[in-house]
Design a binder for these strands. Structure first.
Length: 239
DNA sequence: AAGAGCTACAACCGCTGCTTC
DNA sequence: TGAAGCAGCGGTTGTAGCTCT
């Protein structure tokens, strides 16, 4: 596909300071949007897509740099439990953070969370080889990225969401309500009230590519809690 | 000291939805 | 109403720098 002139050979790779300057000048003059005309107006040999990404993720004013704070981390965890991989939605509730940043952060920090060290990993593999039931093997995710990651018995021990979370969904039916509810608390202490298993089982039902949204934008969160098979079959985000 | 492995992050790719004609 | 183009999103890849052995 590509934006702008499809047959053009767009420049790829890291942006130079000069390219950044040209893009910033363009956005200052014309505002965000109309990305396909950036190359024409500025002489930048970059696709509109590339320009948009560079601006949104790097050049846009007000962007925070560096590690996420514990508070932001807590919000990311909770918002992911509510919204699944809706990174742009999650990013809206973290001012100064981009969807790309949050996505990267999640993948590097949380997708591996609970993953043991190498030694522990090897020990675990040995144990699982001995103990793993055939049924569970069938249910293992097929993704290459999940190679070596296995589901512990602990993960399957409890398919009930915490009463706190249930209450929250009941009390705060909309996204905004839920977010304000979460953010108005001390997130860290609030998280302490919810067991890790609950986060695990409160993840999005990834079998549904549309994210299980109904027309009122109410997420059918925790749907996988009632159906642990669909959770395992989703093959993603297993701690 | 050096090579292997890991982490973090920037950037690209492909798909989807919206808008316009 | 359908086709085309644009904008945005999520998944994936590439790589520089750091850590480990």
């Amino acid at each position: 596909m590509g934006w702008g002139i499809p047959e053009q050979e767009w420049r790829k790779g890291p942006w130079t300071p000069e390219e950044d300057r040209l893009l910033s000048e363009y956005v200052n003059l014309y505002g965000e949007g109309r990305w396909s005309s950036v190359s024409r107006c500025t002489g930048l040999n970059r696709s509109g897509k590339s320009c948009r990404l560079r601006w949104v993720n790097y050049l846009r004013p007000g962007l925070k740099k560096g590690q996420l704070t514990p508070l932001e981390e807590g919000i990311v965890v909770e918002m992911h439990a509510l919204w699944g991989n809706k990174w742009s939605t999650i990013a809206r509730y973290l001012p100064g953070r981009t969807d790309n940043e949050i996505k990267n952060y999640w993948r590097t920090h949380f997708k591996k969370k609970g993953k043991p060290s190498r030694k522990q990993d090897m020990e675990k593999v040995q144990t699982l080889k001995q103990n793993q039931a055939p049924k569970k093997q069938e249910q293992e995710p097929q993704e290459d990225s999940m190679k070596g990651e296995t589901i512990s018995d602990e993960d399957t021990s409890d398919d009930q969401m915490s009463s706190e979370v249930q209450e929250m969904i009941k009390e705060y039916p909309t996204l905004e309500d839920q977010c304000f509810s979460v953010m108005s608390q001390d997130v860290a202490s609030w998280l302490d009230t919810i067991r890790e298993d609950d986060f695990c089982f409160s993840l999005w039902n990834l079998d549904d590519p549309k994210g299980n949204m109904d027309h009122d934008h109410q997420p059918t969160v925790f749907s996988c809690a009632a159906d642990s098979n669909s959770f395992y079959n989703s093959g993603d985000f297993i701690f």
